[in-house]
């Protein structure tokens, strides 16, 4: 086999096979990202026949950073992402450990029940929770109160976070459960013989063993929570008065909301800011993975 044939076999052929997927990725992912980035430097209301008509430099970014709503959405996005990454991961890990080591009679039924909300459409889940959290909804009836959960400026975003965790905790739990099934039982038996208590076994054996799974779940939650739109949109619509906006809902507000500001350029700028934030998290994650050799 000469050099040309070798090159053909090792480079040309594999890339030819990859080509359809690469073209698909280019058209569906990279092209929109690039267009969106370019759009963020233009004044585009969404109605212009020529999208790239009025170049405004970094005006859209300046405008965005001067908006109170941007800072509210930034804060809420971090609450949301942080809660999903840490609280949801912790709760699901805790539940997985209890169910796995609890040896419950109906363990698979319990797992199924916890996982069940994850198979429902987020819009349906949000609509149901919107009814439950209404002033004359189920929660207030049980508590004998009439608290406006979703209309409270400080509480609205936490209600959204709660519903999101409720829906997706089962998804993480199933992954943790699969991870737990891979633990070498002999290690735990040896720890028993050595007189280790449950706390020691969990923190010295189980959690270190599950570290890759914990990272995987945390990463999935992080990416998923950045994308969250439907739950916020249906439960609060970003309100009251924009106080529960996250990046995605604010992007929608600037770009498409009926009777909204119709500033798609600003929406694109916000999308780019979000893109940078995800990249930053991605870099941190890669570094952590490298350091911990997970």
């Amino acid at each position: 086999m000469n050099r040309f044939q070798k090159f053909h076999q090792s480079v040309v052929v594999p890339y030819l096979w990859l080509m359809p997927a690469l073209i698909f990725l280019l058209v569906i992912v990279f092209l929109p990202v690039a267009v969106s980035l370019i759009l963020s430097f233009y004044r585009f209301t969404g109605y212009e026949l020529n999208i790239f008509n009025k170049f405004v430099g970094i005006y859209n970014f300046k405008f965005l950073f001067h908006q109170r709503y941007f800072w509210i959405s930034l804060r809420n996005t971090f609450y949301f992402v942080g809660s999903m990454t840490f609280i949801q991961t912790t709760i699901s890990l805790f539940l997985a450990i209890i169910i796995f080591f609890g040896n419950f009679k109906y363990s698979s039924l319990i797992r199924m029940l916890i996982f069940f909300p994850g198979v429902l459409a987020p819009v349906s889940v949000s609509l149901a929770w919107r009814k439950i959290l209404e002033q004359d909804g189920l929660i207030n009836q049980i508590l004998h109160t009439s608290y406006p959960w979703l209309s409270n400026v400080n509480l609205a975003i936490w209600c959204v976070i709660f519903v999101n965790i409720w829906q997706w905790v089962g998804y993480n739990l199933v992954i943790f459960y699969a991870g737990l099934e891979g633990i070498n039982k002999e290690l735990l038996e040896a720890a028993d013989i050595d007189g280790a208590n449950w706390t020691q076994k969990i923190f010295k054996i189980v959690i270190p063993f599950l570290r890759p799974t914990i990272f995987l779940n945390a990463l999935l939650n992080l990416i998923g929570s950045f994308r969250a739109f439907d739950i916020v949109y249906v439960l609060t619509g970003g309100g009251p008065a924009h106080n529960s906006e996250v990046f995605t809902t604010l992007m929608y507000y600037y770009s498409f909301a009926p009777n909204g500001p119709s500033k798609m350029g600003v929406g694109a700028a916000l999308a780019f800011v979000m893109f940078l934030a995800i990249i930053a998290f991605g870099i941190v994650r890669i570094k952590l993975l490298k350091e911990q050799k997970v």
Binding site: Y47, S255, A257, P258
Partner: peptide, 25 residues
């Protein structure tokens, strides 16, 4: 409606007649 109309106008595929929200839009 905005999700439909804006991309349609930008792409040059808007309907022959379309309603527009009066006022700001």
């Amino acid at each position: 409606y905005g999700e439909f109309l804006k991309p349609a106008i930008a792409a040059g595929t808007a309907p022959d007649m379309f309603a527009v929200y009066p006022g700001a839009e």
